[in-house]
Design a protein around this nucleic acid. Structure first.
Lengths: 191, 191
DNA sequence: ATAGGCATGTAAGCAGTTACATGATTTA
DNA sequence: TAAATCATGTAACTGCTTACATGCCTAT
């Protein structure tokens, strides 16, 4: 059970409803964990049943009421035990990289287009994360914040997200350029 | 079904047995797809039943016989259709980053230790991938190989793996240092 | 002798995806 | 008046993990 802990960690940032969590996990919680809405609603139900989070009804006007959740003491204990246990290895599954691996034997055109799209998505995420960094550190510069800020966890993971998206963007563009040049070369040589 | 295509792509590099594929997918096929042995044996059975790969018994002396697989024409068609379809978004799940996200509210000591371990693993993978790059490009330099080499797919994905592992290593070390310094500061201030 | 590598699986259970379902309010 | 956002789920299915199982050969 792994999503549990990701949800508990996310709820340390404040009270969130299932819907709000879907927004957070849709981007991937600064890019290290993705979860679908259905997963989140199911997990929140289980977490509440297990007493690791507590729900609270928030009455809203102009929009549907919502239930927001906070981590209980039992939840904190669960998180502490999790943090002390050996971590599972980083899991990556990249559909696009599978295409690149096989690209010599296939039509490279769609793959090149997909690489450009992925590069743009990565650039957009990078911009988003960089804004989030500014918001998190307030008026402090990065160095000072990392030394003296009270809540550096999300900042550190967001820095990781930035690194990743920057690399994804650059790798996609580099790869697309390589494949385009090879395609151009082939067209000149073999008609 | 996503593992299918990863297996088909891996089998473009040559004939492999289930066991050999477990070695390849254990590292993560240059770090973009991990699969367990059980998954691979099951998937190979299904791929063969669907006629996308063909198995061939190889008699060995001194060790058990093995069945090696090649991609059939139907398999190539499947791969081509896959490559032209829109890719699924990059999936990442990082157990260690969950810990870092929550680290303000927990004992940072085990997390710092885990970050150092992860950094070492990443460095080891990086070294492995860099050796693989040298092997793949032979006596050509990178630029020439990327322009003229026949099989650049695996090289390009391996370059991506290098980028990722380098970032993971650096992020882990940076994060560990930040957390250690904060821990030292806290110990001086609050006893 | 014992550990490690080669080689291939089965079975049970848990996690994750896809499709479906509902309904109110705000914005274009 | 249609589309988007807020808000929360259920059900069926597929994919993945964990545990178990077997057996031979090689190197220490």
């Amino acid at each position: 059970m792994a999503l549990r802990h990701a949800v508990l960690a996310a709820l340390l940032d404040g009270e969130y409803s299932g819907y709000q969590l879907t927004k957070i996990f849709d981007v991937g919680v600064s890019n290290f964990w993705y979860a679908s809405p259905q997963q989140l609603y199911a997990e929140l139900t289980r977490l509440e049943a297990d007493g690791l989070v507590a729900g609270r009804e928030v009455v809203q006007q102009g929009r549907p009421n919502k239930r927001v959740f906070t981590v209980t003491e039992a939840g904190m204990a669960e998180l502490a035990a999790f943090a002390a246990a050996p971590p599972k290895p980083l899991l990556i599954r990249d559909d696009l990289a599978v295409r690149v691996h096989a690209v010599d034997r296939l039509d490279p055109a769609p793959v090149i287009a997909q690489l450009h799209e992925r590069a743009e998505e990565a650039a957009a995420k990078l911009a988003l994360f960089e804004k989030m960094l500014v918001r998190l550190r307030g008026d402090l510069d990065e160095e000072t914040f990392l030394r003296q800020g009270e809540r550096v966890g999300p900042y550190l993971t967001c820095l990781g997200g930035c690194r990743l998206e920057r690399e994804v963007r650059d790798w996609c563009l580099r790869t697309a350029r390589t494949l385009s040049e090879r395609a151009a070369y082939t067209r000149r040589e073999l008609p």
